[in-house]
Write a protein that binds this DNA or RNA. Structure first.
Lengths: 260, 260
DNA sequence: CCCTGTGAAATCCTTCACAGCC
DNA sequence: GGCTGTGAAGGATTTCACAGGG
């Protein structure tokens, strides 16, 4: 961490994260304490996928499933699934499979969504509206407790069942509601400042939709969701596919946009 | 839907993708053709990040930068950056650094965003609106050519500078505009059917915002963006942090929501 | 010297293959 | 016999450390 910002937490996106050590052991002395915990990041990122697949199975009345079934429903192969689950413990029955309801509970517990976490959304533009109205949050272990925006025109507007509050209430809301996750849906220019205030107020996890990096102190996790980056990753594969055929380049519209 | 679909393309999300081989060599015969191309997926996923960082640097008047500078602006460490760039070629100058404009062009070319790709958005609810209005697309190598929805109430509505068209026009639009990327912003229940139609119409890349898996034939790439999965990944780390201190569990609200 | 580009080492992740239990 | 759980093998990615050119 030489140049640029000092400490920084996670900036999760796609592969190539930047996580803090997998917590190999706690002790620094000679004694080998061999901490049993320490689920690999790749596995952590898939647990929510398994959880959703299990909920779907449960909803459709399935009581039991094999690793093959669940893997199919989650879009991974079964060895990966079994290896992932093995980090949590032995929750299956050899020769039989997994009890859907039981495994679902165990994964939810491991992720920590058995009790709702309070979420605040900052920046209620188009995207903020979409996030605020997304029913998935409330049913998946999260409770949206505040919608904040600094545009006076939007103040008081009702979105879903909530009223938009001023950005100046940020610190109050975080403290009173015990917000642990902040969702940044502001323009890029505002993101760092809002992030700093969230962190100062005690928020330790941020989901960043703004198309910019935000720097946070160590101990705070940031995950980034970036629409145009996702599209560009697709574009790369798209243009490799096109390169395979005869044509030297894609469609009829030879504009040189490069402005990216 | 037990063992689920046969062939499937990519279902990119976070770490743990499921990419097709790194294209080691093209020939199947004995002759070693040693294809020089074949950029690792992890690198491909970071190129757009570097590209954005370079654009920011250029906008602020920077003509030249070191790997350390660029790495800082992109949120990675400098060895990773240099290794990544080494897959594209030698575009820097030893002892000096990189020419911002030149490197920007090279990366844009490698990604394939020097010419606009046509994008169609399907499902113009809250999220679709947000995506349609997102200015970033148009300036980053993409051209939104259609907004489709099957709700008759929304038909004809103006969003940004575009009119919402009926889902029945999907095939026409894809053919006429040469759509290569489809963005799925429909409810989960509709996603698979729309995806099938996109693929049948010739679309080979899909960005899926619907909270469900979509299966596509080999050769089609799918990337998935899932809000509640991102939140759950944060929740995991959040609850591990809380476990570190004295308390046995988090905030005052002992509800057992498990319904995820 | 400074900084890039890159082999080689270290780490992390996935897949294989089978022992072990129902 | 079927299916989980897991060591061990195999890949992929990251980091190190330094050779090599301005």
């Amino acid at each position: 961490m030489s140049s640029a910002r000092a400490a920084r937490g996670t900036q999760g996106v796609g592969p190539g994260e930047e996580r803090t050590r997998p917590v190999t052991s706690g002790a620094v002395d000679g004694a080998e304490t061999v901490a049993p915990r320490g689920i690999p990041d790749a596995t952590v990122a898939r647990l929510p996928v398994y959880l959703r697949a299990l909920v779907n199975l449960a909803e459709r009345g399935t009581r039991t499933c094999s690793s093959e079934d669940l893997a199919g429903a989650a879009g991974v192969n079964s060895s990966k699934l079994r290896k992932d689950l093995s980090y949590l413990g032995s929750y299956g029955t050899r020769g039989v499979g997994y009890d859907v309801e039981y495994l679902r509970y165990q994964i939810a517990r491991e992720i920590g969504v058995t009790q709702d976490l309070a979420v605040a959304i900052i920046g209620i533009g188009n995207l903020g509206h979409a996030l605020a109205n997304y029913a998935g949050f409330s049913s998946r272990g999260f409770r949206i407790v505040a919608l904040l925006d600094n545009d006076p025109d939007r103040l008081g507007e009702e979105v879903g069942a909530m009223r938009i509050r001023g950005l100046d209430e940020l610190e109050t809301v975080v403290a009173e509601e015990g917000v642990s996750i902040g969702v940044l849906a502001t323009p890029a220019a505002a993101a760092q400042a809002v992030s700093d205030r969230l962190v100062a107020a005690g928020v330790t996890s941020i989901l960043n939709f703004a198309p910019t990096l935000v720097s946070v102190p160590a101990g705070v996790d940031v995950r980034k969701v970036d629409l145009s980056i996702e599209l560009q990753i697709l574009a790369y594969h798209e243009h490799r596919k096109a390169a395979g055929d005869g044509s030297s380049d894609v469609h009829p519209s030879t504009r040189t946009t490069v402005g990216v």
